[in-house]
Design a protein around this nucleic acid. Structure first.
Lengths: 219, 219
DNA sequence: TGTTTCCTGACAGCTAACTGAAAAGGCTGC
DNA sequence: GCAGCCTTTTCAGTTAGCTGTCAGGAAACA
C-alpha cells in the first residue's frame, strides 16, 4: 500500500515511517502542506496520514481541498490529545478515522488495515495475472490457481509496487526504494534475491526481467 | 460476537460490558454518536446496542443513517421506562428489538441471542474447517471428528472472530480487541498464548500464522 | 570468446512466534 | 470464610522463519 505521511514532527514521522516500512508498506513523507500537494499530484496514494497542525498551513485545508476536488483517498488524521474540536472538524471535512497522539504504532497499523479493507469494496479487488495468479492488493492476498499463498512483508512490498504498475518496467533502484527508505544505497543484490524468491512462489513467468533496465509484471 | 454498545450512562455501560465480556462476547463501548460512527466505520459489528438518549445527538439518527446506507446490522435499542414514543420511533427507524431500562442482564443476553439467531439465518449453522473441525457459531459448539469440545470464554472470543472472517488475516491488535475493550494496549503475548491453546484443542492446522501480520482461519 | 548482468542456493544473525510453567484471579460448594 | 478447581495472565526459554549477504554459476550480449 502506498501511504503519504504529512507530519512535521520529524521524530514521530521517522518512527511511523520505519514501522510501516517494516510492515511492507511504501511510505512517502512530507512535512508541509505545500510539499504534500506536490507529492499527491505526482502519485496516487492509497491512504493519507495527515497531521492537522502543520507549520505552513492547516492540514485540514489540504483535506478539504482534496474532497472538494472529488478525491476519495482515505484519510486518517493525527491530532493532539486536547484538540477534540480538530478531530470533529476533521471528520466533517471528510477524514475517515483519527488517532490521538501519542498513539501506538500497532494501533496505527490496525486502523490502516481497517481503512484499506473498507475501501477495498471496489467492484474488482482481484487483479488477474498470467499463470493463474490473482492478487488482492487491499487484502494482501494472493491466490495461485485458487490456493491462498502468503508473502513475507518484504516480498509483498516489492510485488505490490510492480502489480500497481502493470506493464511498466521498474528499475532495481525504484524497487529498492519500496524495500527501504527514500535515498537508501544499493549495496547488494537484495532485489534480485527477492525477485528470485517471488518467482519460486508465484511461478517463473509472472515477473519478467528486462535486462539492463529492471523488472516488469504483466502486459 | 462483536457488539457495539452505545451508552452514555457509564455505570450501566460498564455493567453491560462486563456481563457480555464474561460471556465471551467482544464488546466495544462508545458514549457518543460521533465516536460510534467512527468505530462502526472501522469494524463490522454483529449487533448494535443503542441508547436512544445520547448527549451529542439523538441515537435514533445514528440508526436511521445506518439503515439509509443499507446496513442490516441488527440493532437493539435501550430506552427509559416512560419513553414509549421513543421505542416506537426506534422500531420504525429499523431497530430489531428493544429493552426498557433498567433491564436484567440475562434478559439482555437472551435478546442478543435471539437477534443473532435470526440473522445467522443460514440453514446449516455448522461451518466446516480443515482437520475435521466443525463450528456452530450460534450454538457456540465445536465438534472435532464429531466429538464435542469445549472452549473457555476467552478462547471462544478469539476463535469466533477468526471463524467469522475465513481467509482473512487478523492482526494481533484486532484479536486483542476481541478479548478486551476498544483501544486496550498490547502488554503481553496473551493472543499468542490463546492461539497456542486453541491449536492444542483444535489441531495444528486450523489456525495459520502469517508472520509479521497475524493469524488466519480457513481458505 | 570474454564480459556483463542476472539467478539462486547457502548461511549466519536476528526477531517474531511458540509454549511450558507458575502466579494471579474467580467461581463454587461446603 | 475457606478449600479446591478452573481460567486467565504473565514470564522466560526455546524454536522457527525472515532477512541480507555472498559466491558460484547461468544466461545474455558483443
Amino acid at each position: 500500500m502506498r501511504i503519504l505521511l504529512v507530519e512535521d514532527e520529524l521524530m514521530l514521522a521517522d518512527a511511523v515511517r520505519d514501522h510501516l516500512l517494516a510492515a511492507g508498506e511504501a511510505v512517502d513523507h512530507s512535512d508541509s502542506v505545500v510539499d504534500a500537494e506536490i507529492m499527491m499530484r505526482g502519485t496516487n496514494y492509497d491512504v493519507l496520514l495527515l497531521d492537522l497542525n502543520l507549520p505552513d498551513g492547516k492540514g485540514i485545508d489540504l483535506l478539504r481541498g482534496l474532497r472538494r476536488s472529488g478525491s476519495t483517498t482515505p484519510c486518517i488524521i493525527l491530532t493532539a490529545q486536547d484538540q477534540i474540536s480538530d478531530r470533529i472538524e476533521g471528520l466533517n471535512a471528510g477524514a475517515d478515522d483519527y488517532l490521538v497522539k501519542p498513539f501506538d504504532l500497532n494501533e496505527l497499523s490496525a486502523r490502516l488495515a481497517a481503512v484499506a479493507r473498507r475501501y477495498s469494496g471496489n467492484p474488482n479487488p482481484f487483479i488477474s495475472l498470467d499463470g493463474g495468479v490473482e492478487v488482492d492488493l487491499a487484502g494482501r492476498t494472493i491466490l495461485i490457481d485458487g490456493v491462498q499463498t502468503d508473502l513475507t512483508s518484504r516480498e509483498w512490498a516489492l510485488f505490490d509496487q510492480m502489480v500497481r504498475r502493470p506493464g511498466q518496467t521498474l528499475s532495481k533502484r525504484q524497487l529498492e526504494e519500496a524495500l527501504y527508505e527514500f535515498g537508501a544505497e544499493i549495496e547488494s543484490n537484495t532485489v534480485e534475491v527477492y525477485i528470485s524468491r517471488l518467482r519460486r512462489k508465484l511461478g517463473k513467468d509472472v515477473i519478467k526481467t528486462v535486462r539492463g533496465v529492471g523488472y516488469r509484471v504483466g502486459a
